[in-house]
Computed example of a mutant assay.
Amino acid sequence: MIPDWNHALNRDRYLDLRDTYTALVGADERWRSGEHDWLQPHVLHLSRYIVIRSAGFLESTRDTAASQFVASVAPAEVVRRVDDALGRGQGAAPKQLSDFLRTFSPSWATLLDEAFDARDGELRSRVGALIAARKKVAHGEGDPVTLTRALEGCEAAVTVADWIVSHFTALQMATTAPSAT
């Protein structure tokens, strides 16, 4: 099941992703019941689509959360410089996400790596598979997408995006909180 999204940031993108996830599950259930044989190719195409959308959601959420954080703690010149660098295909593979956070603070990358490595690295594996599948689908290099992997990748992308937004939000609140003097 796709995790809930309790953030205003990228809410519309999340709702689209959730609706696609729900439609994909429903189409697969109808196809498997034998109700609609014509749905099989549509399930495959929706699986590919949700892989691409999930990866894009994760990348966009990372960039937007970072931009909002920087805007809350830095002068306008720094914000413009950071915003200029965001959205330039930095990728959303686990190592790329960790490296991105490391540019802010090594400890932030360590925290994300710990989240990735919990439960025997399941989250790292699912996000890595999602990003690899997105690349192959986008470049026409075979078709590694199965319904199960597409849904797992979507769930993992939302989980990591939630972690990133929650992390930046907590830092932003701590940075902008009034001092107790």
Rank of each mutant, 00 (worst) to 15 (best):
I2N: 02
D84G: 13
I164M: 09
A66V: 06
A76T: 12
I164R: 07
A161I: 00
S72G: 06
E59A: 05
R11K: 10
L15A: 15
I164K: 08
D120Q: 13
R53V: 15
T181L: 10
T148D: 15
A129P: 02
T110Y: 08
L15S: 12
T159K: 08
S105T: 14
T64V: 13
A27S: 13
C154F: 02
F168E: 06
A138W: 01
V145T: 09
D4A: 13
L112G: 05
V78P: 06
V25Y: 04
S166I: 01
L44V: 14
D143Q: 14
G26M: 11
E35I: 00
E122F: 10
A65V: 00
N10F: 09
P94H: 01
D117T: 10
A85Q: 09
G142C: 04
R48Q: 14
H167D: 09
H42T: 09
D28Y: 13
T22R: 14
M173G: 10
L147G: 03
L123M: 14
W163Y: 13
A180I: 11
G140H: 02
L86P: 01
V158P: 02
D84N: 11
T22Q: 15
A133I: 05
V82F: 07
D4T: 14
W31F: 00
V43R: 00
A109K: 08
R119A: 15
D16P: 02
F69W: 09
W31G: 00
A161R: 05
E122N: 11
D4S: 12
L46T: 07
A133T: 06
L58G: 01
G34E: 00
F100N: 01
R18E: 15
A133N: 11
F104L: 13
A133V: 03
R11T: 07
